[in-house]
């Protein structure tokens, strides 16, 4: 099961997790198979492709876009995405005048049903500390230069609300089918650190 080589001693944390899993299994609190299933689900079955489908639908269907912006969780559930860490979603619309970006300054809140588990940088102290103090500088490090006449709004997740950005459709979106549009949407675009 474990992939480590016998000549390399396991790290303290790897050993600790193994000990905790064993002891909790013996107490009937966790089950090995259930852990396998949930880890596989978050590793392989849910991810930013879900959010990209939501964005592509919003780009191609004005009624859907209106529903999504008015009350995001049910609109997202129309595409089959719901559950833990997505119960109370708010979708933020980028426009020619406003660019939105999301963070969780206090911990690591992130909209799992549409984006999967967050990348390490999103959870890291530098992003959490700096995106609220100097958002334009941080966005520039990501390669996104937001013009001075565009307002930048930084949304800090609360214990309940999970945000996702609806990017503006790029020029390349013109004439594309909804399925083709999905490929134009990136995870970073839905966090707000990329244009789309």
């Amino acid at each position: 099961m474990s992939g480590h080589k016998h000549n390399e001693p396991e790290s303290d944390i790897a050993l600790r997790v193994k000990a905790m899993e064993q002891l909790l299994t013996e107490k009937g609190i966790v089950e090995t198979n259930a852990i396998d299933l949930v880890a596989d689900y978050f590793e392989n079955k849910v991810g930013p492709r879900n959010g990209a489908r939501v964005v592509a639908r919003a780009w191609s269907d004005a009624d859907y876009r209106a529903r999504l912006l008015a009350d995001a969780s049910p609109a997202i559930a129309e595409l089959g995405y719901s559950g833990l860490q997505g119960e109370d979603m708010v979708v933020l619309e980028n426009t020619a005048d406003v660019h939105n970006v999301i963070v969780c300054t206090l911990c690591s809140c992130y909209p799992w049903p549409v984006l999967g588990l967050p990348p390490t940088w999103y959870k890291s102290p530098p992003y959490r500390a700096r995106i609220v103090r100097e958002p334009r500088a941080v966005l520039a490090e990501f390669g996104l230069d937001v013009s001075d006449n565009v307002e930048v709004r930084v949304w800090d997740s609360s214990a309940e609300i999970r945000y996702m950005v609806l990017p503006m459709a790029p020029d390349a979106a013109a004439g594309k089918s909804e399925e083709e549009l999905v490929d134009l949407v990136s995870r970073d675009g839905m966090i707000g650190v990329a244009a789309h």
Binding site: M1, S2, G3, H4, S11, I13, A14, V17, K18, M20, E21, L24, V30, A34, I35, D36, V38, A39, F42, E43, G47, V103, T105, L106, G116, L117, P119, T120, W121, S124, P125, P126, Y127, R128, A129, R130, V132, R133, V138, E141, F142, D156
Partner: peptide
């Protein structure tokens, strides 16, 4: 949030969801 003294945001290209088998187990536990 807003604290001073942090450097650049370090990113990893094509970052995997879990970086080691123990991270998967930790998530599930």
């Amino acid at each position: 949030g807003g604290m001073h003294g942090f450097g650049p945001v370090e990113r990893e290209e094509n970052e995997p969801v879990f970086h080691a088998p123990w991270e998967r187990r930790a998530f599930g536990v």
